[in-house]
Design a binder for these strands. Structure first.
Length: 253
DNA sequence: ATGTCCGTAACCTACGGA
């Protein structure tokens, strides 16, 4: 089984690249963030023609999350707690409870959006803490948080900024403390960035952050074979500023 | 330390958000 998460920064702008990527990598499930579409615009039929069912929670100009699956897609859940923005969607695929998450950016430590980010992470923790212990769960998305300094190209350059502050890191550790494993970090202690700013030639200078994660319950994590960041997807014409994170599992569907 | 890209509204450029 192969599962990927990818913040595409507009599915409209990224459509041909997303399509090509799926054909080349053949994920069983793809968790998408920032579709920036409403449901009417989402390419349900095109995904179906490629062999995938899809579930989308869109709001138009901003946000928007989706799950596409070729191994079942049931019990779709849209939204998290009392949040009014389209940042969270869940579905059951092949007996795995899957979630695609787009955590609020936070903008700046003194911005109200940062408090919204912390509150959102609290709701995510509560949802995961309330799950049934026997239910395999796989959560992926853009968390807009670098968990440790190993996930930051230059910690000094980001001092005092969002994505690296202690309260949001603690909030993400609280999510993980519900018996989840950070799959990317479980396979390597090397830096493995997933996002590079479009500005300043950040990608070719190596100025990246690891802010996209795949998280799974301990039993599912034990089945992991590989976890990789597809840096190729950050290159070339009109890339997203995020690269996909791809995990394979010893799990026959 | 802010050099790009996205969608939108309204035009052929500026803006908010990331």
């Amino acid at each position: 089984m192969k599962v990927a998460t990818w913040n595409v920064n507009s599915l409209t702008a990224r459509w041909s690249r997303v399509q090509q990527w799926i054909v080349e990598h053949e994920p069983d499930v793809l968790l998408i963030q920032e579709t920036k579409q409403n449901d009417a615009k989402f390419p349900f039929a095109a995904f179906a023609a490629m062999g995938y069912e899809s579930a989308h929670y869109g709001q138009g100009q901003w946000n928007g999350v989706a799950i596409i699956s070729r191994c079942g897609l049931d019990d779709v859940q849209r939204g998290l707690g009392d949040d009014s923005e389209a940042r969270f969607i869940g579905a059951t695929c092949a007996r795995l409870r899957m979630y695609s998450c787009y955590v609020p950016n936070g903008r700046a430590l003194d911005d109200p959006h940062y408090q919204y980010k912390l509150r959102w992470l609290g709701m995510l923790r509560d949802l995961l803490a309330a799950r049934e212990a026997t239910q395999p769960v796989l959560l992926g998305g853009d968390f807009n948080i670098a968990l440790s300094n190993l996930d930051v190209y230059d910690p000094a350059a980001l001092e005092g900024m969002t994505h690296v502050s202690e309260p949001e890191r603690a909030a993400l550790r609280e999510v993980l403390s519900t018996d989840l494993v950070d799959l990317g970090r479980s396979v390597t202690q090397e830096p493995s960035f997933t996002w590079w700013d479009y500005r300043n030639g950040s990608f070719h200078r190596g100025w990246g952050l690891r802010i996209d994660y795949l998280l799974a319950d301990a039993a599912t994590a034990q089945r992991v074979q590989t976890v990789e960041v597809d840096r190729e997807a950050r290159k070339g014409e009109k890339p997203s500023d995020h690269a996909p994170v791809v995990a394979t599992f010893d799990w026959t569907l």
